[in-house]
Amino acid sequence: MCPVLGHLDGRFESADAEAEHRIAVLYQEFGGPLLRHVRKSTGNDLQWAEDVVQETIVRAWRNSARLQWEPSLIWAWLLTVARRIVIDGRRRKSVRPQEVEPPEVDMMAVPDGSERALSAMIVADALRSLSEEHREVIEQTYLRDRTINEAAEILGIPPGTVKSRLYYGIRALRELLRDKGVAG
């Protein structure tokens, strides 16, 4: 083998090995906690949750500059990336025929029924005490799996208004839940 090519091959191999090592480290550090959170939003679908975690880790690796952030920000970003992947997956699934995934599955797989019902009540109460404008945009976007633009069309208001109301509504909800000792 030509020594120059051999040298280059060696460098490529070590770059691959380094990438693999970095991905393994990311898995070790974030894989477990991410999986626990993601499973909640996949209705305990473990296979789906594992795929989501894998994709999240790969995206983190591709955006390694963000891994220089402080740990709480890295974690917030990773959770947001993972949630987005779940939401995109759910949107794709919802255009498939219903028999692929009956809607009951999500609800039947929910553990700790009474405890969760209680937190659901607290969150519902907090939501009810928001102004109509704020509650409406939270309901029409996140709670109904709709984007800002889709909700804007349904509500007949500009997307920028939905985005801004969502911001103030979410901040208000966060304050309410923090007062009730729900938020961490």
């Binding site: 959170h37 909640k40 939003s41 209705g43 709480s72 920000l73 974690w75 917030a76 970003w77 959770l79 947001t80 949630r83 999500d106 609800m107 929910v110 969760r116 019902a117 937190s119 659901a120 009540m121 969150v123 519902a124 939501l127 939270i138 996140y142 709670l143 979410i170 901040r171 909800l173 966060r174 839940l177 729900v182 938020a183 961490g184």
Partner: peptide, 17 residues
């Protein structure tokens, strides 16, 4: 982002209830 990151999961309680 750090402050708000737990909120979606709290709203999920409502979706899953």
């Amino acid at each position: 982002l750090i402050e708000l990151v737990e909120l979606p999961e709290q709203l999920d309680e409502l979706k899953n209830a």
